[in-house]
Simulated scan of single mutants.
Amino acid sequence: MKHIITGIGALLASAAPAFAGGIERAPHSLAPLFENGNYAEVSFGGVDPEVSGTDIMGFSTGDVAQGYGFAGFAYKHQFNENLSAALIVEQPFGADILYPSSTPILGGTRVEVNSTSYTALLRYKFQNNFSVHGGIRGSRADGHVRLQGAGYRTTSGYDLKLDGAWGVGWVAGVAYEVPEIAARVSLTYNSSIDHDFNMKESGGPLPMTFEDEYTVTTPRSWTLEGQTGIAEDTLLFGSIRWVKWSEFKVDNFVFPISPGPTGGEIPLVEVEDTTTYTIGVGRKFTDNWAGSVTFLYEPKEGDIISPLAPVNGRKAITVAAIYTMDNIKISTGINYTKLGGADLGVGESGNKTKVAEMDDGDLWGVGVRIGYSF
């Protein structure tokens, strides 16, 4: 079971998903913290999504989702039998949406978000198979939002630039293991993180450029993960992840504008909370080769969603393989995701005006993870 146990985190994350709830591209992974001994890894890959639909005038939106690459690094150090630490660098949040100018209702609308997180963790194992882990997470992010097209009415032409800024949060969790059957259950909490951005706003209802410092909050989350041996050389694993995307807010000068006719706010960004389920099976085939297949399901949330996050729900399958040679482990995964279609709307919370309808989309992702134990 050794090759499967030590590689299961890589199998889950070998091909990063895109368009999870909100602007999440891949969930925060603590897998390196559970590796045996001292361990280091690098990961990289790319994702090619396709999302398109039709606006309320019957014009095609074209493919609004841009492809992207990702990279990561992790180092775990075992101080003694009980105490270990890890440093994990990853890119969990991001967005790259562009509506072609040929679409009159949303043409020119653009959102671009980039982020990198740095997580420092400690883990302490007790003698009764329980362990606790926790630490701090620093996140650096930047972004650009442009609202364009007849669908945005008086706010069309609004442009918001967010310079790079840091935010700090924390992580805490507990795990229970039964090594004899390769079993482990862990529960991890990730706090929300506030980023105080220097923002520059212009266009739309603004008669001039407006600059100030505002706060963007990335959401808190809970992740429950488990695995257990179910037969010789065979492992069953899965997870449930809940993210409170409703607290992802962009405080600025223009949004929310004055209350609308029903007294509701008109937010710049509005995203529903999400729950994501995964289940998979891994198997060792030879002393060098192991593989897995993982299924993911994220149900749709809400009826009409923002054009800035034009996907609602997803279903995915990831097929991965691990090759182990001495202390080196190479994991490769291929991911296919079916992205849920959605009605897009602008306006007040709970009373949005439909401006477009997106069809079911899809994406392909490929990832490679190289680990070294010492």
Results as ranks from 00 to 15, higher is better:
P49T: 00
I88S: 04
P92V: 06
L33W: 11
L106M: 12
A71Q: 14
G45V: 00
D96F: 05
V64N: 13
T54K: 10
N128F: 02
R146W: 01
Y118K: 08
S84C: 07
G138K: 10
D48N: 00
G143R: 09
A85K: 09
G143Y: 05
G143N: 10
A74P: 13
Y75E: 11
G45R: 03
N38S: 05
S131I: 02
N36M: 02
I88Y: 09
G138F: 01
F59L: 04
L87F: 11
F73L: 13
E112T: 11
E50P: 00
T54A: 00
G107L: 04
N80P: 02
S117T: 13
L147I: 04
P100K: 12
A40Q: 13
I88E: 08
Q91P: 02
A71W: 15
G107D: 15
Y99L: 03
H77F: 03
D48S: 03
Q91Y: 09
H77W: 06
P49V: 00
S131M: 08
E81V: 00
L106T: 08
H144S: 01
G138N: 08
N38Q: 08
S60W: 05
H77G: 00
L33G: 02
I97A: 06
Y99G: 08
S101V: 09
V51L: 11
S29I: 01
G58Y: 04
H77V: 00
L83H: 14
P92L: 11
D48Q: 05
A95K: 15
A65G: 06
F34A: 14
V132G: 07
S117G: 07
T61S: 04
F70M: 04
G58V: 01
H133P: 03
L87H: 14
N129W: 03
A40V: 12
A31P: 04
I136Q: 15
A85I: 08
G67Y: 04
G107H: 10
A95G: 13
D63G: 06
R137L: 05
G37E: 01
Y75N: 12
H133D: 12
Q66P: 01
G72C: 08
S29M: 00
